[in-house]
Simulated assay, not measured.
Amino acid sequence: MLVSCLEASRDLCETDAILFGAALAVCRIIGAKVSTAERATGQSSTISAWRRRIEERIAKARALIGRLICFISGNNRPRIVRTVRMALALCHRYVSLSQPDITQKLTERIDDLKQRIAAWAKWIRRYTERSTRFNQNRLFQSDQKRLYESLERPMVSGTGPAPNQADSVVFWCGLWSEPVNEYIEEKNF
């Protein structure tokens, strides 16, 4: 089953997901405990509803800023024009897009959206910092050793330098171009 799934995979992400699923199934069958990075960092995988809503607002505002900038730079496609009219209708009663001060009004709207994004991001950042402090205080009271170990351990997220594209290509080409023995013992996954 794994061979047929891997042959049907279209890209590296899909191959990774298939292999991870197979490894997880094997671990469950043999009863091995699975340690994920999520457990190692102490972060929860569930995002609260209010945070998800704020992140959606931020994404919509960024998309709107992008369309407003496209219009200012001369893109007059109907979808862009419709979005610009909608954005201006929220802050002005009626604005003709042929007015001489339209660029100024659009710039003001962009600035307003940027300020809102900054405020929303600050809400999320303050909550995250408060939550981290709360969890660290609770961990300090229950298990100081684990707290100090978690503070000394480097963060799991990709905070290091980005890999060089040429090195990545050489690495993966060398890995995928090696001949592989196609014999796979059949097991029930």
Score class of each variant (00 low, 15 high):
residue 56 E to I: 01
residue 128 T to G: 06
residue 42 G to V: 06
residue 98 S to E: 14
residue 136 Q to A: 04
residue 134 F to W: 14
residue 93 R to Q: 13
residue 72 I to Q: 07
residue 26 V to L: 10
residue 176 W to S: 09
residue 25 A to C: 04
residue 121 A to M: 05
residue 86 M to Q: 13
residue 7 E to G: 02
residue 185 E to R: 14
residue 155 M to Y: 03
residue 179 P to S: 12
residue 107 T to N: 14
residue 154 P to N: 01
residue 100 P to S: 14
residue 17 A to W: 01
residue 109 R to D: 02
residue 112 D to P: 00
residue 82 R to T: 06
residue 128 T to F: 02
residue 94 Y to V: 01
residue 20 F to W: 05
residue 148 Y to V: 14
residue 82 R to N: 15
residue 24 L to I: 04
residue 130 R to I: 02
residue 125 R to W: 01
residue 8 A to N: 12
residue 79 R to Y: 03
residue 85 R to E: 12
residue 76 N to A: 15
residue 12 L to V: 13
residue 25 A to S: 11
residue 82 R to M: 08
residue 53 R to I: 01
residue 129 E to S: 05
residue 49 A to F: 05
residue 12 L to N: 08
residue 149 E to K: 15
residue 42 G to L: 03
residue 48 S to N: 06
residue 68 L to N: 00
residue 122 K to N: 08
residue 171 F to G: 01
residue 66 G to D: 13
residue 174 G to Q: 07
residue 186 E to K: 06
residue 1 M to T: 15
residue 147 L to W: 02
residue 24 L to Q: 15
residue 29 I to H: 13
residue 57 R to Q: 10
residue 121 A to T: 13
residue 117 I to R: 00
residue 141 Q to H: 11
residue 93 R to F: 09
residue 62 R to L: 02
residue 126 R to I: 06
residue 24 L to A: 12
residue 47 I to F: 04
residue 52 R to F: 06
residue 65 I to C: 00
residue 27 C to D: 00
residue 134 F to N: 09
residue 12 L to H: 11
residue 39 R to S: 14
residue 8 A to Q: 08
residue 147 L to I: 12
residue 51 R to N: 13
residue 70 C to S: 15
residue 182 E to F: 05
residue 74 G to K: 06
residue 75 N to A: 13
residue 17 A to I: 07
residue 171 F to P: 00
residue 148 Y to T: 06
residue 36 T to C: 10
residue 162 A to I: 10
residue 46 T to R: 14
residue 151 L to W: 10
residue 156 V to S: 07
residue 89 A to N: 10
residue 92 H to Q: 03
residue 148 Y to K: 04
residue 189 F to L: 11
residue 183 Y to I: 15
residue 29 I to S: 06
residue 74 G to S: 03
residue 29 I to F: 04
residue 184 I to E: 09
residue 175 L to A: 03
residue 32 A to I: 07
residue 21 G to F: 05
residue 98 S to I: 03
residue 136 Q to K: 09
residue 22 A to W: 05
residue 133 R to G: 03
residue 145 K to W: 10
residue 129 E to T: 06
residue 101 D to E: 14
residue 27 C to R: 03
residue 141 Q to K: 10
residue 134 F to P: 00
residue 50 W to H: 08
residue 131 S to Q: 06
residue 64 L to F: 01
residue 120 W to G: 00
residue 139 L to M: 09
residue 80 I to E: 04
residue 36 T to L: 09
residue 51 R to I: 13
residue 58 I to K: 00
residue 71 F to Y: 13
residue 63 A to D: 05
residue 42 G to T: 05
residue 171 F to S: 03
residue 9 S to I: 03
residue 37 A to G: 10
residue 182 E to H: 09
residue 166 A to F: 12
residue 138 R to P: 02
residue 10 R to G: 01
residue 133 R to A: 04
residue 182 E to A: 13
residue 4 S to I: 09
residue 58 I to E: 00
residue 36 T to G: 08
residue 75 N to V: 09
residue 156 V to F: 06
residue 102 I to Y: 01
residue 107 T to C: 07
residue 94 Y to D: 06
residue 119 A to P: 01
residue 135 N to I: 05
residue 5 C to Y: 08
residue 40 A to D: 08
residue 46 T to L: 15
residue 186 E to R: 09
residue 53 R to H: 04
residue 126 R to E: 08
residue 49 A to H: 09
residue 10 R to A: 05
residue 72 I to Y: 01
residue 77 R to N: 14
residue 128 T to P: 00
residue 173 C to L: 14
residue 97 L to S: 05
residue 118 A to Y: 13
residue 159 T to L: 07
